[in-house]
Amino acid sequence: MPAFPTTTAPKDLKPALELRRPQDRFATRLPWLDSKHSFSFGRHYDARDTHFGLLLVNNDDVVRAGTGFETHPHEDMEIVTWVLRGALVHQDSEGHGGVIYPGLAQRMSAGRGILHSEKNDCWRLTGGAQHDEPVHFVQMWVVPDEARIDPGYEQSEIGDESLRGGLVPVASGMARHDGAAAIRIKQKDAALYAARLEPGGSVALPAAPYLHLFVARGSIDLEGAGPLAAGAAARITAGDGQRVIATQAAEILVWEMHARLGAG
């Protein structure tokens, strides 16, 4: 049984490119949190901007030291967390816990229901010195292709050298990434890639029906679109493998998707 109604991309999908500049994002600002949302999230709602392809959430979060998200529930969602700076502590009701840091990919399958917390207080687990460094991370949610599965958790480290060698599959449910993606997700039509680019470095994006490019830091030039700064995103429909060139040292996150949310 599918968790959400989805449909495979039609063969006659027309090419399109939509840009989202950093200033276009919804923002949640609290004393302990600075969060930017690429799609409708929480109290921010726009019926025209709820998802792209299979991606429902792309949150760019900065959390102050000693604070964080208290225990809260999720159901039927594949949640991938990618830390850019600092360290994030994860703990959940299935007994999983640990510290997520840059280069460590993490996936939580909410399935039939899970409770978890995310906090910037790694000294509580590691016994290290307390610090005042914020943690900066991107959290992404994609719909699963099956509802009510057992909740699950997986993490895997990706070396800096690999990330500087081009687009690396970070999380995927695609058959072609068996044994290659760092972590598996329960969605056969989606894959997340990451790359770290030096100035002048370039990569070709996957050719896909739906592709979401997020500039996590630095700045790039996207073929056919021009310059994109940190916090910007491109939603590409029927992409043919556009090239990305870093104009500053940059880190990009790319979702390749072959289906979209919606029944028709």
Results as ranks from 00 to 15, higher is better:
236 I>W: 09
191 A>V: 09
197 L>Q: 03
200 G>E: 04
109 S>G: 15
10 P>G: 13
176 R>S: 11
193 Y>A: 01
249 A>I: 00
257 M>G: 03
11 K>S: 15
72 H>M: 06
149 I>P: 00
185 I>L: 07
248 Q>H: 12
246 A>M: 12
184 R>A: 12
160 D>K: 13
190 A>W: 12
250 A>T: 14
103 G>L: 08
56 L>F: 06
222 L>F: 07
36 K>P: 03
242 Q>K: 11
131 H>K: 11
38 S>N: 09
209 P>M: 01
107 R>D: 03
74 H>M: 02
127 G>P: 05
181 A>E: 11
125 L>F: 14
38 S>W: 05
212 H>W: 13
156 S>Q: 14
70 E>I: 02
9 A>P: 01
25 R>K: 11
147 A>S: 13
86 G>R: 02
3 A>H: 00
93 S>A: 05
186 K>E: 14
249 A>E: 14
35 S>Q: 09
30 L>F: 12
103 G>T: 04
211 L>Q: 10
23 Q>L: 09
17 L>Y: 07
27 A>H: 14
209 P>R: 00
244 V>T: 12
142 V>L: 14
187 Q>G: 09
138 V>W: 13
251 E>L: 06
2 P>Y: 03
261 L>A: 09
176 R>P: 01
18 E>M: 09
32 W>C: 05
44 H>A: 04
56 L>H: 01
73 P>Q: 04
109 S>F: 07
27 A>N: 12
92 D>C: 02
122 C>Y: 12
61 D>T: 05
32 W>A: 05
212 H>L: 15
17 L>V: 15
174 M>Q: 15
184 R>H: 08
126 T>H: 12
197 L>A: 06
263 A>N: 08
82 W>Q: 08
62 V>D: 07
35 S>T: 05
173 G>A: 09
51 H>P: 12
235 R>K: 11
106 Q>Y: 09
95 G>T: 02
196 R>W: 08
58 N>G: 13
222 L>R: 02
30 L>I: 08
216 A>Y: 10
245 I>C: 05
260 R>N: 09
24 D>G: 03
37 H>Q: 10
24 D>Q: 10
81 T>N: 06
170 V>E: 00
1 M>S: 07
148 R>S: 14
115 L>Q: 15
263 A>I: 07
114 I>Q: 07
17 L>S: 14
171 A>Q: 11
253 L>S: 07
127 G>K: 04
232 A>H: 05
81 T>G: 06
3 A>W: 01
132 D>I: 01
136 H>T: 04
89 V>C: 05
143 V>D: 02
146 E>S: 11
15 P>H: 10
178 D>G: 15
257 M>E: 08
19 L>T: 15
18 E>T: 13
209 P>K: 01
253 L>C: 09
221 D>T: 12
247 T>E: 15
177 H>I: 04
243 R>E: 13
98 G>M: 08
49 D>L: 12
106 Q>L: 10
79 I>W: 08
148 R>V: 01
133 E>K: 04
104 L>N: 03
3 A>Q: 00
177 H>E: 04
40 S>V: 02
123 W>D: 08
251 E>H: 14
229 A>I: 00
183 I>M: 14
246 A>Q: 12
